[in-house]
Amino acid sequence: MFGQRHIDPAPGTHYRSERVSAVNGQYFFATREGTLEGPFFTRVDAEREITSYIRRMQQASRLVENRAF
């Protein structure tokens, strides 16, 4: 994902890091929001859940933006 969210600060130097990590045989992924999601049984499961997580976050963002106050 190369886009910038409207809540992100101004463009700067960004370093890519591995989002999936293994701890005691279980897999987790780190989010931009600073959370660690998991555990998952396999790396493939964790990577698949990254896609689901992004989709949920985008959907939540659209709901908040479209909500009438």
Rank of each mutant, 00 (worst) to 15 (best):
F69D: 15
R5Q: 09
Q4R: 12
H14K: 12
R62L: 13
R43H: 12
G38T: 00
Q59G: 04
Q59S: 11
E65W: 03
D45E: 13
M57I: 10
F69V: 12
F41P: 03
R43Q: 14
S61E: 13
F28W: 15
I54D: 06
Y53W: 15
D45C: 11
L63F: 05
I7H: 08
G34M: 04
Y27I: 02
R43I: 14
V20W: 02
D8W: 07
E18T: 07
G25I: 06
E18A: 08
F41Y: 05
N24M: 14
P9N: 10
S17G: 07
R32S: 09
T35S: 14
E33P: 00
Q26H: 05
F29I: 01
M1R: 09
G25S: 12
Q58I: 14
I50Q: 01
R56E: 15
T42E: 03
T13L: 06
T13S: 07
R55H: 14
R19A: 11
A68S: 10
L63H: 08
A68F: 04
I50S: 00
I7G: 01
L36F: 08
G25N: 08
A22T: 04
T31A: 04
A10C: 07
R16E: 10
G3I: 11
F28D: 00
G25R: 03
F41G: 05
F41L: 15
M1Q: 06
Q26R: 07
P11W: 02
D45F: 09
G34N: 03
P9V: 11
L36Q: 07
D8V: 08
P39E: 02
E65V: 04
L36W: 09
A68V: 15
I50G: 01
L63S: 09
I7E: 09
T13K: 09
H6K: 10
F69G: 13
A68Q: 15
F40H: 00
V44T: 08
N66E: 15
P11G: 01
R67Q: 13
I50Y: 01
H6T: 11
F69K: 14
R55V: 13
H6P: 12
G12D: 03
L63C: 04
G25F: 03
F28M: 02
R5W: 09
E65M: 05
A10D: 10
H14T: 14
R62A: 10
G3T: 14
R48C: 15
V23T: 14
